Amino acid sequence: MAADDQTDAMEVADAITSLIDKSLIWVVLINGATHHRLLDPTLAYAAEKLAQTAEANAVAKQHALYYTQSLANGAGKAGAISREDGAAARLYMGNIRAALEWSFSGAGQAAIGIRLAAAAAPLFFALSLLVECVRWCEQGLAALPESDEGSVTHLALQAYLAASAMFTRGNSDEVRRAIEDALSLADALGDQQHLMHLHVGLGIFLTRIGDFRGALAVAQRGITITQAIGTPGAIATGESVL
């Protein structure tokens, strides 16, 4: 339920209030923020009715755009998702999955899917949904237009593909290439946070395959990066892999 050219925000608010009064919407408070969800039977009924209309694809597009924009503030950022953000995100993972499925479908728009995959990747990774993280990052990268190569979106997709593949695809050359490709992008963009985390990942990978000299060299380069960042957390991260 959302405002559009024919329905303004006040009408939407009135409709939501009416559904809450009828106990058709579940309201939950997480960290001071109010979240609304249709009950599953109501959601299934509404989805069935929507599928029978000519508006289904337009609604799916607006749905995907909403979650793309909602997650956009986190797109491209390296590092951990807070517990609070993770708790709130769990409520919406079904919506995010549905939006991704539509975006990369024949009826969808891959351009939206690319941005959504990049924005959602940190959540999939933080919630240990690693196979899904790999899947959507790979789909985003496969659909990435030449004009977006080397962009922040490209980096986010490549970095989270590399991080997730480390835990799902073993110590393969494919995983090493994914990490090194992400490092090249982060270096070109001057993204110190991604460089720090990717150096940690590469160091772990090299340790796993027994290349201890290589791992030490990577850790030493990582120290230079974390010192440049200068925060206590970054410095501790760099020192933890030495």
Rank of each mutant, 00 (worst) to 15 (best):
A3P: 15
D8Y: 13
A9K: 15
A9E: 12
A15N: 07
S18H: 09
L19W: 08
I20N: 06
K22M: 10
L24P: 00
V27S: 14
L29V: 15
I30W: 05
N31P: 02
L38V: 05
L39T: 07
P41D: 02
T42V: 12
T42H: 09
L43W: 15
A47V: 04
A47Y: 02
E48R: 15
A51N: 07
Q52P: 00
Q52D: 03
T53L: 01
E55W: 03
A56V: 09
N57T: 12
N57R: 07
A58Y: 01
L65V: 13
Y67N: 08
Y67T: 04
T68W: 05
Q69L: 11
S70N: 12
L71C: 06
A72D: 12
N73R: 09
N73S: 07
G79Y: 00
A80C: 02
S82P: 01
S82I: 03
S82R: 00
S82Q: 02
R83Q: 11
D85I: 06
A89P: 00
Y92T: 08
M93E: 03
G94L: 01
W102A: 02
G106C: 04
A107H: 12
G108L: 04
Q109K: 13
A110V: 07
A111G: 11
I112T: 10
I114S: 10
I114D: 10
I114A: 10
L116P: 00
A120V: 11
A120I: 11
A121R: 07
A121L: 07
L123W: 11
L123N: 07
F125M: 06
L129T: 04
V131R: 13
C133F: 07
R135K: 15
W136I: 08
C137Q: 04
E138K: 15
A142C: 04
P145I: 03
S147P: 08
D148N: 09
D148C: 02
E149Q: 14
L155T: 02
A156Y: 02
L161G: 00
A162H: 02
G170V: 05
V175A: 00
L185E: 03
A186K: 03
A188R: 14
D191R: 04
D191H: 10
Q192M: 11
H194D: 08
H194N: 14
V200N: 09
I204Q: 11
F205S: 06
F205D: 11
F205H: 09
F205V: 05
T207Y: 11
R208Y: 10
R208T: 10
R208W: 12
R213C: 06
A215G: 01
R221A: 09
G222P: 02
I225K: 01
A228H: 06
G230Q: 04
I235P: 02
I235V: 14
I235D: 04
A236M: 10
V241S: 00
V241H: 11
